[in-house]
């Protein structure tokens, strides 16, 4: 009985803490939007230069690794697609399958996971280090709103760059798949491209991009919340950085499913 009540207590505490963090994330998001809208009037503007710097770090610097990953995913999808469709003797339709799965699913998912691992964790580590080093207190007592200065720029940069990276991921993945498909099925690249274009509607593109926008917000908030909760020195920073990656990726995968369920049926 005591073991059971301990379990109940543990689950209860965990749930409360989770709710607490979700609430904190919501407050952060609201504060960011407030400073973005009213910051200039209140003499606490969100600096464009800071947004650009973050955008370069989150977006431009991620391009090489993102290209490698999505190219590989494209080829992998082509291999598996042709293998699967062979069962029905429908290999020639593989371009449709590849186009839809890349644009609706894989690009945004891989981009989200990559950015969570690269930039979400960096955000958590940076804020966590600043917190234990009293740098956030220093900002506060200087009269510089920490949310405005530290959270709003990466949020804006993420919301712009993650969908942009996803667009790039579409192109690279479809190119990779195209190379394999044209080689295997002896069709011209032009024919492959026209099949892809024919398969896609604007709504499919919108589906993938809308998801990547949501992922961008999730990655930022999870990173910031975990960074702000750091306690206990360097070890604490490491722990919360890991936690932020795990949470961000879980949030991305679950949101992906819910979004697809809500929008696709």
């Amino acid at each position: 009985m005591t073991a059971f009540s301990r379990l109940v207590e543990k689950v209860g505490r965990g749930t409360l803490q989770g709710l607490d963090e979700v609430g904190f994330a919501a407050v952060l998001l609201a504060e960011c939007l407030y400073w973005l809208a009213a910051g200039r009037r209140k003499r606490q503007p969100v600096r464009v230069a800071a947004v650009f710097q973050q955008a370069r770090e989150i977006g431009v610097n991620a391009l090489p690794i993102l290209s490698v990953l999505t190219f590989t995913i494209g080829v992998m999808l082509a291999i598996q697609g042709i293998y699967t469709l062979k069962t029905f003797g429908a290999e020639s339709r593989v371009a449709t399958g590849i186009a839809l799965s890349v644009v609706r699913e894989f690009s945004s998912l891989i981009t989200g996971v990559l950015v969570a691992g690269r930039s979400g964790s960096a955000l958590a580590a940076r804020l966590g280090t600043m917190k234990i080093n009293q740098e956030i207190d220093a900002l506060t007592v200087m009269g510089i709103e920490p949310v405005r200065y530290l959270v709003a720029p990466p949020l804006v940069a993420m919301v712009v760059m993650v969908p942009a990276l996803t667009m790039w991921a579409h192109l690279v993945a479809l190119f990779g798949a195209g190379l394999y498909v044209t080689g295997q099925l002896q069709i011209s690249f032009g024919a492959y491209v026209s099949q892809v274009v024919e398969a896609l509607r604007l709504a499919d593109l919108g589906h993938g991009l809308a998801k990547s926008g949501i992922f961008a917000v999730l990655i930022t908030l999870v990173g910031v919340v975990n960074g702000a909760l750091v306690s206990g020195g360097a070890e604490g920073v490491g722990r919360m950085t890991t936690r932020s990656v795990v949470h961000a990726i879980s949030a991305i995968v679950i949101t992906d499913m819910i979004f697809a369920f809500a929008v696709t049926r």
């Binding site: 606490q44 740098e135 009269g143």
Partner: peptide, 18 residues
């Protein structure tokens, strides 16, 4: 925030932005 512009703080660890 206005008031804070009229005060300065030197923290124990310095708290310089690294």
């Amino acid at each position: 925030l206005e008031l804070r512009r009229r005060m300065g703080v030197a923290f124990q660890s310095g708290a310089l932005f690294s």
